[in-house]
């Protein structure tokens, strides 16, 4: 659970984040920070799903669905803003679909299922050439158009995508914050901690799990849409890459599962460190920090991911009860 101090910190961080474009950052750095913010959104949405006890190895699927949808809609001549929103909606639907699998799968099986799900969408994007452009993907995705009611020129150049990425990140954090204080948060936590016990208290677990998937998929889809809008191309191997599944997982676990701001801060730190400190010197190995962070987290995270999951056996551990018994 987040502490109140975090709210102040986040306000300060937000204020700091407004600076880069105003102080005349080089467009490349602006692009890097924007991407870091997108990863912050992705990591926070991963964490939102993990808060409901569902470990995803397939956020690239939701990200990619959002990206492809945004690309297709804006290429068809509709407003790129509508394209972004629809990207979020399709990301949510795609996530809800695989979320239905959580009726039968949990833990490692669900993680593998989500991994396969990404591969399925990558395969579809590769083969459904008439729509997706096949392996070559889609190019020439139009930029965002100016909005009459927005005083800032969000639509032009890197500044626009920077502010939008920042807005998405703040939005997902705000929504997560709200969830933690609502019935949703209570249901998510109960389902995560002990699904069976929750069901005996009137909680039907599946709809809540599907809802968590949909929410997480929505924000991932938004991020995917904006990403495509920034790079102006979309290819199956690029956007359905496991890179977009591994990074949020690393960032969220490294930043602190179940914390409100940890994943986003870890995303900014890890991404910028790897791009600014490693990429210029050893470009081929700039993903090394993520790999190493993942290995370290897997080995040394207290209780592993399990601390987050419902107890694997339907019965409580006897040893625990007896220790308590002895102590009482």
């Amino acid at each position: 659970m987040p502490r109140r101090g975090w709210i102040g910190t986040s306000l300060v961080a937000a204020a700091l984040l407004l600076f880069p474009p105003l102080s005349g950052f080089h467009p490349y750095y602006l692009y890097l920070v924007s991407t870091a913010l997108l990863f912050g959104t992705l990591a926070t949405s991963w964490n939102l799903l993990a808060y409901a006890g569902q470990i995803s190895f397939g956020h690239a699927a939701f990200f990619g669905l959002g990206g492809y949808t945004a690309a297709l809609v804006s290429l068809s001549g509709l407003s790129p803003w509508l394209a972004l929103a629809l990207g979020g909606a399709v990301g949510a639907s795609g996530a809800a679909a695989i979320g239905m699998a959580s009726a039968r799968l949990s833990g490692a099986s669900l993680a593998l299922g989500t991994l396969a799900y990404t591969e399925i969408w990558r395969g579809i994007a590769h083969n459904w050439t008439a729509v997706s452009g096949g392996g070559a993907g889609l190019i020439g995705i139009p930029p965002l158009t100016p909005l009459p009611w927005l005083p800032l020129d969000l639509a032009r150049s890197r500044t626009g995508s920077y502010y939008l990425a920042l807005a998405f990140l703040l939005l997902v954090i705000a929504v997560f914050w709200g969830i933690l204080r609502s019935r949703l948060g209570l249901a998510f936590a109960a389902v995560r901690e002990e699904e069976e016990r929750a069901s005996l208290l009137g909680v039907h677990p599946l709809p809540w799990k599907v809802l968590a998937f949909a929410l997480s998929g929505f924000f991932s889809g938004l991020a995917g849409g904006l990403y495509v809008n920034m790079v102006r191309v979309v290819e199956p191997d690029l956007i359905f890459s496991h890179y977009f599944s591994i990074l949020p997982l690393v960032m969220a676990t490294f930043g602190g599962l179940g914390t409100l701001l940890g994943p986003a801060l870890a995303a900014l730190a890890l991404y910028l460190a790897s791009e600014l400190l490693l990429h210029p010197y050893i470009p081929a190995f700039h993903q090394l920090p993520y790999a190493l962070a993942l290995i370290v987290v897997a080995l040394y995270l207290p209780g592993g991911l399990a601390g987050l999951l419902p107890s694997p056996s339907p019965l409580p551990k006897r040893g625990e009860g007896e220790t308590r018994h002895g102590a009482a």
């Binding site: 249901a187 002990e194 016990r197 929750a198 208290l201 409580p316």
Partner: peptide
């Protein structure tokens, strides 16, 4: 349950609130 099965990482209050909220 014979061996209590609360939501161990939640507060005592939230443990009771779950049933009150979703009954």
């Amino acid at each position: 349950f014979q061996i209590a099965r609360p939501f161990v990482h939640s507060t005592v209050f939230d443990n009771v609130l779950v049933g009150v909220t979703f009954r």
